[in-house]
Design a binder for these strands. Structure first.
Lengths: 138, 138
DNA sequence: TAAAATTATTTACCTAGGTAAATAATTAAC
DNA sequence: GTTAATTATTTACCTAGGTAAATAATTTTA
């Protein structure tokens, strides 16, 4: 079993999907990582930046950067909370009203990417992905 | 079937692996994308930059950037070919002599990441990944 | 064979991810 | 209640990916 080949394939397919998603999102002036945050906020309501990066499992600076851009472009607002260290992120009216159109386009791209898999195969893929991990002893 | 969840999981697991691989490669002063090029050159011998980016399925500027760094750090040389537009990339002595040690460490990290999958599951995963694609009509 | 098209690489500029360290606010400890 | 530790966010700096356009060399074509 050539694990390097498997992981290279894994990497390539992700890039392929993200590039395609960027093309889809371009009509809305969004990038795939911005969409991920928009999606999270739509599901979870007004949450702090920490809640966002913990949920998305990326580092805090990544979220700060992307949110600053999204705020400039009118997708979100970042209000200071009662705990003055934290920023509570809310979607703008525009973000909420455009959301249904965006998610429809995204779902279509996702389904296009997964098209060759049966329902069962998608479940199998998810099951296998869940098993991937690094167990570090520390 | 929540395709967004599936793709988010996919993305997260890749980052998890790459971060771990970077930690592994840190002892050699390498990053995962540099390793990928080193691996390709070791397999394929002296090839042009175009051959590298076509094989790895990334864009040309990505390869230029990484190779410039790798040249500065003594992993590769880039010689001008008989076609003076092209650069033929060769591994340095150091790269060749350190390679066995590096690939051993990389394989170990790869296997750690895939550890929870049986031999059959790895094959299934590969088979499913191969089916992922974007069919664009143009 | 001179002009036009193509090809290989690079440059400039963008998003997306990471770590380390700084800052400011809050909580815990003494 | 002041000091120390922790927490949320940001800043600075790095790799890794993308597109668009520039440059230089080679091929094609008229």
């Amino acid at each position: 079993m050539d694990t390097s080949h498997l992981l290279h394939l894994y990497h390539q397919k992700l890039r392929m999907f993200q590039n395609e998603l960027n093309i889809t999102l371009n009509q809305f002036g969004l990038y795939h990582s911005q969409w991920t945050i928009l999606y999270t906020l739509y599901q979870k309501g007004n949450i702090t930046q920490t809640e966002i990066w913990q949920y998305l499992k990326v580092e805090a600076p990544t979220i700060t950067r992307t949110l600053v851009k999204m705020e400039q472009r009118g997708w979100v607002e970042r209000k200071i909370g009662t705990d003055k260290r934290e920023r509570i992120v809310t979607l703008t009216e525009r973000a909420i009203s455009t959301y249904p159109e965006i998610i429809q386009a995204v779902k279509q791209t996702e389904e296009l990417f997964l098209e060759q898999l049966s329902k069962q195969e998608k479940l199998t893929l998810q099951h296998l992905l869940e098993k991937l991990s690094i167990e570090r002893d520390e």
